[in-house]
Amino acid sequence: MSGALLEVESLKVVFPTEEGPITAVDDLSFSIGPGETLVIVGESGSGKSVTSLAVMGLIAPPGAVAASAIRLTGKDGNARDLTRLSEAEMRLVRGGEIAMIFQEPMTSLNPVYTIGEQIIEAIRFHETMSRRAARARAEEMLRLLGIPEPRRRLDAYPHQLSGGMRQRAMIGMALSCRPALLIADEPTTALDVTVQAQILELIRALQKELGMAVIFITHNLGVAAEIADRIMVMYAGQAVETGSARAIFRGTRLPYTIGLMRSVPRLGLDRDLGPLPAIPGNVPDLRRLPKGCRFHPRCSWFEPGLCDAAFPRLEICGEGHLVRCLRWRQVHA
């Protein structure tokens, strides 16, 4: 895709274990355009978080990353392959070009420094700016984030803030250098729904205001529907379906996605209609993946001799809509 902000080509992440190597992400390719929101949906072991850490260059040895390319178009308009950058160069990309926020804000906020000190440090690491100017930018950022009394909050320590405020402070730190891409890994999962609603609204507003692209990782289909332009569904280390939010929610051709959508209880669901249509079985163990399609032991469209024998590739099933299923032509919600 030309004009992409980030293009990931054939990403593979392998971790050695006592029982042999685990391929956490397997031959993954995707791209995201400027200002776009891509939601990666997946369960545990799907590879969604490992993917984002690999893009950030944060996979620690003995984990190993192989990719044909991870191309990022920088703020200067030049494309660079992140896999070829030195650690010093990557440090400038992280925070400056791509920022990341996590589920638990206390993992990214240092408890012994004030919120202000941490944001100011981040700004001055990436930009030549006086402390005074950086402090003014930090204050403006907290105000943009809807934090009341931003000047006073700059001098607060992380533990003095509520969960929602801490999440805002972390977002503030991440966005203080105006990155072109924000990677948000389950940023609302640990929050209450009313706070989640605040944070989602905030991310949307900031995205509009700053024109930034967002990769949003979640297991919650409701959150995905709320914020996605495009969705990539991952299962057992692979992308299994990609398409516009509308294509996925209205016209998915993948049994796994259909299963997820049906099994989640919705408000107003009539329980007299019977039990929830659950997906049987368990999320697969990456050390013991089934042969053929990785979902076949749990799939209601499973065809013996086909799905347990041949390895499905991503196929085009509609405009901008890819699906990894040998029987997608027969599959419908």
Partner: peptide, 25 residues
């Protein structure tokens, strides 16, 4: 009412009337 309105539902392009509660607990 606010709690129900905050629940994100797996329905794209459905405009939901959302009451976003201000402030903290």
């Amino acid at each position: 009412e606010a709690l129900i309105s905050a629940v994100p539902e797996p329905e794209p392009d459905r405009a939901k009337r959302r009451i976003v509660l201000q402030g903290d607990l």
